[in-house]
């Protein structure tokens, strides 16, 4: 498999549990050494680049995990400035301003002084996105940004992703919901358990046949006509016999 992410492109990684989506993201981030092949950033092998440089180009939004300390939201997102500051430096006025702008863009200014651990899952996810954006990256890598979120929050995250793409930031995200790929009209990489993944437009890759092959369950792709005449596709898993 070979793929390139260019500016403003959104790519959704789909596939069954345990197929290696998260592993791929972690390899791209340089947390893991690739088993074979290379990951390159700006035409250079990512393993040869300093962490600070990578962080100034790629923002990483991990799956939310609880930690035991009560940092405030502003303490969390200002950490995004680490990659832009010297080793002993602390964030200054300019960094605070970038953090403030990001809070405004994501519409979470009201959370600023709240304790991160006390936020809802949706809010925590948006704060993690804010932290990555404060890094001022060109790429954003998100590990299941919508898992554990309700419909309202899922849409909120997808809207943010679309908005970022419009601003020229490329986004690579994993998800368990093919519907989201249809909604955002993105490029898709569909992983199979024992075969080469398929890359292409959502409409081309996410066929009933391919989805059944990937997830091992019968899946219907239903075409729905919206009130404004646009076509929306959605996937429904079937119980079968």
């Amino acid at each position: 498999m070979n793929f390139t992410v260019t500016s403003g492109e959104v790519i959704s990684l789909l596939g069954p549990n345990g197929v290696g989506k998260t592993t791929l993201l972690r390899t791209i981030m340089g947390f893991l050494k690739p088993l074979n092949g290379i990951v390159s950033l700006d035409d250079r092998n990512i393993l040869s680049l300093p962490r600070k440089y990578i962080a100034s180009r790629i923002g990483y939004v991990p799956q939310i995990n609880q930690h035991s300390f009560s940092l405030s939201v502003e303490d969390v997102i200002i950490l995004g400035r680490l990659s832009h500051l010297g080793i002993f430096a602390h964030p200054g006025y300019k960094d605070m301003q970038i953090a403030e702008e990001t809070l405004k863009v994501l519409n979470i200014e009201s959370l600023r002084h709240k304790i991160f651990n006390n936020l809802s899952g949706g809010e925590q996810q948006i704060v993690m996105i804010a932290r990555a954006l404060v890094q001022k990256p060109m790429f954003l890598i998100m590990d299941e940004p919508t898992s554990n979120l309700d419909f309202g929050n899922q849409i909120r995250i997808l809207k943010i992703i679309k908005h970022l793409a419009k601003c020229g930031i490329s986004v690579l995200f994993t998800t368990h919901l093919p519907d989201q790929a249809f909604l955002c009209e993105v490029k898709v990489i569909l992983f199979y358990k024992n075969a080469e993944p398929e890359i292409g437009k959502a409409a081309d890759v996410l066929t009933e046949h391919n989805l059944q092959r990937a997830y091992g369950a019968a899946i219907k792709v239903i075409t729905q006509k919206n009130d404004d005449g646009s076509i929306l596709k959605t996937c429904v898993p079937m119980m079968g016999e």
Binding site: G30, R51, Y53, A55, Y60, G80, S83, Q135
Partner: peptide
């Protein structure tokens, strides 16, 4: 891992 992603060695 998150620290690495933030640019910390």
């Amino acid at each position: 891992e998150e620290a690495l992603a933030l640019g910390v060695n």
